[in-house]
């Protein structure tokens, strides 16, 4: 088809030469880009303008808040590392107090980044033991949450934290409300020896659960459990009361971390799981009533596996028989027994 006058004109335009004129700048090409810029000030990002560097206290607090609330994995880890270095220096720098640090960093037990968790363990180990033990109750709660976490990594790492806590607060841990019962439940659950499963009917195939894929993990869990039981049912060494103790008892404020916990002044009514089991007998009783059966079944199964798991199981078995030797079932009349009578 013959094109219109308009189209012809358009075509012509492409081949027209620019006309130069004397005394005028050459016309710009159609694809010319203007690269000139104007600026009144040069702005530099990320530069502190303060003349004085922040003091140590400020920096410590800043890092603490970074560790607890930063969204960046690396930043968290670095902040934790900084805190660890400050705490392990001689003399240790700790402007906020152990308790405050713990309350900030304990939620990191379930942190999603592995390096941050391992750094956290180092930090915890750097804390003074006698101060850290005042936060046992919070710590064990977070550790239990970590142990049952959906992610296998987190739950494995939580064992390390539990180890630390056993080091820090052995007697306190098993004596606080829920410390004995709930921790044992958690152990049973993560190892797949569920305490509340009904024994009647068919038994399901032995499952170690998705977490204990590696035999190593199971072995570690068992050895930790045996340590926990050991601590929980330590033979009582009778202490000869001195004269000083008598007066202390009357006139001094007790220095234990949970001195008046047994009064339960602020909490609601406690169920069995949240009960305090302060004496060895009480703990023995709970263990034999609720957990002995599933644990011994689990031990039997684990022994058959042999290897590291078998060894750990044997060890656990030994501890269990050793500690439960002096226990007789009908000795105590428990609340539960009374309730059952009702």
């Amino acid at each position: 088809m013959g094109s219109s006058a308009k189209k012809k004109k358009e075509k012509k335009k492409d081949f027209q030469k620019p006309k130069y004129k004397v005394g005028k700048t050459a016309p710009k090409a159609s694809n010319f880009t203007d690269t000139s810029f104007k600026s009144r000030a040069i702005v530099m990002n990320q530069q502190s303008l303060s003349t004085a560097a922040p003091d140590v206290v400020q920096q410590f607090k800043h890092n603490l808040s970074l560790a607890s609330s930063s969204k960046n994995d690396k930043q968290r880890r670095d902040a934790l590392a900084y805190l660890t270095s400050q705490l392990s220096s001689q003399p240790p720098v700790n402007p906020v107090g152990t308790n405050n640090i713990l309350s900030k960093v304990l939620p990191l037990i379930s942190d999603r980044s592995t390096p941050a968790r391992s750094q956290l363990l180092k930090l915890l180990q750097a804390l003074p033991k006698d101060e850290a033990k005042h936060s046992t109750r919070e710590a064990i709660t977070f550790i239990r949450a970590g142990m049952t976490h959906l992610s296998a990594d987190i739950s494995n790492d939580s064992l390390g934290f539990l180890e630390w806590l056993l080091d820090v607060a052995d007697d306190d841990l098993v004596g606080i409300p829920g410390g004995w019962f709930k921790t044992l439940t958690t152990f049973c659950v993560i190892m797949g020896w569920s305490p509340s499963s009904s024994a009647a009917g068919w038994t399901s195939a032995p499952r170690t659960g998705p977490q204990a894929k590696g035999a190593q993990v199971l072995a570690r869990q068992m050895s930790l459990l045996s340590r926990f039981i050991q601590i929980g049912m330590k033979p009582v060494i009778p202490v000869i009361p001195s004269r000083q103790d008598y007066w202390d008892n009357l006139y001094r404020i007790p220095r234990d971390p949970h001195a008046f916990e047994y009064l339960n002044l602020f909490g609601g009514t406690r169920d069995e799981a949240n009960e305090m089991h302060t004496t060895r007998e009480a703990r023995q009783e709970v263990l034999s009533r609720k957990f002995l059966d599933p644990i011994s079944k689990g031990i039997e199964r684990a022994k058959k596996e042999g290897g590291a798991v078998g060894r750990a199981a044997t060890e656990l078995d030994q501890v269990l028989t050793d500690r439960m030797r002096d226990y007789t079932a009908s000795e105590l009349i428990t609340d539960q027994y009374l309730l059952d009578l009702w």
């Binding site: 239990r144 949450a145 049952t148 958690t186 797949g192 569920s194 509340s196 659960g209």
Partner: peptide, 18 residues
């Protein structure tokens, strides 16, 4: 999946406590 559930239940208990 009862075992898995029990684990999650424990997790729930722990979270509730926290």
């Amino acid at each position: 999946y009862k075992d898995d559930f029990m684990k999650q239940w424990e997790q729930y208990e722990a979270q509730r406590e926290i």
